[in-house]
């Protein structure tokens, strides 16, 4: 004990100068993302929802609606699966806010706040660390739907780009849920409110049915809904069709959501005592 404590205390200065090293925010965020990832791997039941949801939704929508809407299940899956990739990623992003809310109650976050790290590092870490959830849900979706007859009609790289686009939007939306997590005291209420946000976003789309029969106001909503753009983009990249327009719209929405909600979430986190 004595030995370790009496070492020359140059470390304080070392820390002071090290903090000025570039990319400090990136390094701290990655360290915290690593923490989130380790926590998820130690509690695999946290991945249960993102593992089961793709199976349940693919089977449910595919068998329920496939015959009526597309003649058979496999044909319906071609348009359904790319859209489901977006929906499931957005669903998965809710958990970031819920976990963040419960993390804020722990003494560990007091320690982070008392350390010389960027105020946004714990939030960026929370967002990035949950990337594993998006990967799991999309991998299970593609795997399971392939068994039922889904086929990528473009090429693997385009399909991958479609998945990454969905994941990007998931990352963006998780900032909205982090904001909820920082503002609300109970993780449970974060989840409740998050679903109120997520349902119009994911189901107010052309995911399940064509838009022609829908009322005008709903079509108007679909023209602005970022999830619709992401679903169109994912379809274009996975089964062919227009790509440039929907991809651009999705990227703009992704950047816009982050630009608005990331600062709000960081501010709410800083103000929380």
């Amino acid at each position: 004990m004595t030995a370790v404590l009496t070492e020359p205390s140059t470390t304080v200065d070392a820390i002071a100068s090290a903090a000025k090293r570039p990319f400090a925010l990136a390094r701290h965020s990655l360290a915290l993302a690593w923490r989130n990832l380790v926590k998820t791997m130690r509690n695999p039941e946290q991945l249960l929802d993102v593992t089961l949801q793709p199976i349940i939704f693919t089977a449910m929508f595919g068998f329920l609606l496939g015959g009526a809407l597309a003649g058979d299940t496999a044909a319906y899956l071609q348009t359904l699966v790319p859209a489901l990739a977006v929906m499931l990623t957005l669903f998965a992003s809710i958990q970031s806010g819920v976990n963040f809310s419960s993390d804020l109650k722990t003494g560990l976050f007091d320690r982070f706040r008392s350390m010389p790290i960027g105020r946004s590092a714990p939030l960026i870490g929370a967002v990035l660390g949950d990337g594993i959830r998006y990967v799991v849900t999309i991998v299970v979706l593609i795997g399971f739907s392939s068994i039922l007859g889904f086929r990528i009609e473009t090429d693997p790289l385009s399909a991958l780009a479609g998945c990454l686009l969905a994941i990007g939007l998931g990352f963006a939306l998780s900032w909205v849920f982090l904001l909820l997590g920082a503002v609300m005291k109970e993780p449970g209420s974060v989840q409740g409110v998050a679903f109120i946000v997520i349902f119009p976003l994911t189901f107010g789309t052309n995911m399940l049915t064509p838009v022609d029969t829908m009322p005008g106001w709903l079509q108007a909503w679909m023209n602005v809904n970022p999830a619709v753009h992401a679903m169109d983009a994912a379809r274009g990249l996975m089964i062919g069709g227009p790509v440039a327009g929907p991809v651009t719209a999705t990227l703009l929405w992704t950047a816009g959501i982050i630009a608005v909600f990331a600062p709000l979430a960081v501010r709410a986190y800083r103000r929380r005592t």
Binding site: G107, D110, P116
Partner: peptide, 16 residues
């Protein structure tokens, strides 16, 4: 923050 260490009333370590 560079000069201090804090041990809070509630254990500030990660259980997992």
């Amino acid at each position: 923050r560079r000069a201090i260490g804090l041990t809070g009333q509630f254990a500030s370590v990660d259980d997992d």
